[in-house]
Design a protein around this nucleic acid. Structure first.
Lengths: 131, 131
DNA sequence: GATGTATTTAACCTGTGGGTTAAGTACGGT
DNA sequence: ACCGTACTTAACCCACAGGTTAAATACATC
């Protein structure tokens, strides 16, 4: 999972129309026209959205007569979930308090660094998350 | 959690520089200059990235002398994790096979609908995900 | 082979995202 | 008071995302 793949996945998910399409596909395969139906949007627009989702690997497309049925491919969503899970401890309430405490402690030491030589800061807890 | 908030969070996370900044902030508060240091990018560029992260609620900023220390606010990441978790069963390998089976079953029934009257499809498993 | 349906492609418009440089603001130290 | 440091704002550029309409493609049916 390269950083670029994650970037395109997030970019794809940033559009509510595309998220709605994914949601719709959880109840099964659907044709382009069926997917377009809930939206006040031209077919080519939907077609573009589907192309984005396909490039990102979030859907796969079939080829039956004149239909191009879409089905959900949730693989990249696991990457998203895994990425976000790295920050789990930072949204846990208990950690918030711990963080405040650690910040106070840190305050006693040297901060930011004035002028050219600012010491590299150390990680305080756990390993560094993947980007 | 409105759909728009989720959209801006995903949009914010779609940029690798911003994700790197978040990762850096897991090891504690940092000044803008410190955050900028790893990147071959002008300060204003970093400043803009921070503004995006702040608007999205992913960081909060302090005000100490001429420094604007940033700290991580992981709240929105929980929303991301929760959203992605809705699709958990779709990336589980076991489900893939189940899905294939169900798709075959469905194939026996009417498909897509020819002409005007295509029947509304039913959800097959569980509830509909939030968008 | 003409017609209708499903979908994509092409050409185009507009807004915005991410970068730049240059100037402005705010603060501390001497 | 002046200088250096930290950071933001302003003005600008360019690429691209998301939408449009109109035309092209692919297939099924009559």
């Amino acid at each position: 999972m390269t950083s670029d793949q994650l970037s395109s996945t997030f970019a794809a998910l940033a559009d509510p129309t595309r998220r709605a399409i994914l949601a719709r596909l959880t109840s099964g395969e659907a044709s382009v026209t069926q997917l377009a139906e809930p939206f006040e949007m031209s077919m080519p627009a939907i077609s573009k959205h589907l192309k984005v989702l396909e490039r990102t690997g979030l859907i796969a497309r079939g080829h039956e007569a004149q239909w191009r049925p879409c089905r959900l491919k949730a693989g990249p969503l696991k990457d998203v979930a895994d990425w976000a899970a790295q920050y789990r401890r930072f949204w846990a309430e208990s950690f918030e308090r711990l963080d405040d405490y650690l910040r106070d402690v840190q305050k006693k030491g040297k901060k930011y660094g004035h002028g050219k030589h600012h010491g590299k800061q150390r990680a305080r807890i756990g390993a560094h998350p993947r980007v």
